[in-house]
């Protein structure tokens, strides 16, 4: 589904991604972790072309990301993305947030878009909030709407960039629950997160990044079970201890 091969990216002389390669098969859940500034957000944003890269290739469902012949808006419409800061559109109601992509990008009718939107809103447990505006919801609620918004486009895979790290601790689980459910339904997911409980529960593989390199790409059991590189061990012990 997603094939990242030998991707390099730099800002001037600063190398953000160095020779990154990995794949995400259909239905797989991949967790990406690593210290701050290691390039996790950058890597995940290259997958739908929000961040350009200088060399290497990324294929999503057989289509080359960033190639001159690729219709990027069309490709992005098929890849769902959830951001650390939710990024709901503050000037639109929740229902508008859930329908605008369907109407303007997928050319669905208003009624059809509304039906899909409300169904998804119900699924994330927020049916009662349909008429509200994003500013009136809690962080956890906003993030659940953001997931519903991404799902409203019937994506072939979902990208998550630290979806719970901007949330108060008591709201983390309501978002993780939605993600776990999604994983169980077979959604292909690439998630930047430090929620190791989530990784243990649903991840197929865990990728560990440091200074722009992918230095571990292991199955969940290997990652948590057998001895790993020193950096990954240090990092893991740090995030697992709290």
């Amino acid at each position: 589904m997603i094939e990242i091969s030998h991707v390099n990216k730099h800002y001037g002389a600063f190398q953000v991604l160095t020779d990154c390669s990995t794949t995400v098969a259909k239905g797989e859940v991949i967790v990406v972790c690593g210290p701050s500034g290691s390039g996790k957000s950058t890597l995940i944003k290259t997958v739908n072309g929000l961040e350009p890269f200088q060399s290497g290739t990324i294929m999503v469902d057989g289509i080359s990301v960033g190639a001159p012949s690729t219709d990027m808006p069309k490709l992005r419409a098929r890849v769902g993305m959830v951001f650390q800061n939710f990024e709901l559109f503050p000037h639109m109601s929740i229902t508008e947030n859930l329908t605008i992509g369907q109407i303007k990008v997928l050319n669905r009718s208003k009624e059809e878009a509304m039906a899909t939107g409300l169904k998804l809103l119900d699924r994330v447990g927020l049916k009662a909030q349909a008429a509200k505006f994003p500013g009136q919801l809690s962080g956890g609620q906003q993030q659940r709407v953001a997931i519903a918004r991404a799902l409203s486009m019937n994506p072939i895979c979902m990208l998550f960039d630290e979806p719970t790290s901007a949330l108060d601790p008591e709201m983390v689980n309501e978002v993780l629950d939605v993600m776990v459910e999604l994983a169980h339904e077979g959604m292909t997911m690439m998630c930047v997160t430090h929620e190791m409980g989530f990784a243990r529960k649903v991840a197929n593989r865990v990728i560990f990044m440091d200074q722009g390199h992918i230095i571990e790409d292991a199955t969940k059991d290997d990652f948590f079970g057998t001895p790993r590189g020193e950096r990954a061990q240090q990092f893991l012990s740090k995030i697992l201890s709290h």
Binding site: P73, R76, A77, V79, E87, V105
Partner: peptide, 15 residues
């Protein structure tokens, strides 16, 4: 982030 969210939904620059 708002621009990224719009782009990620599949909007064109104009949209």
């Amino acid at each position: 982030g708002q621009v990224a969210a719009g782009d990620a939904l599949g909007f064109t620059y104009r949209q």
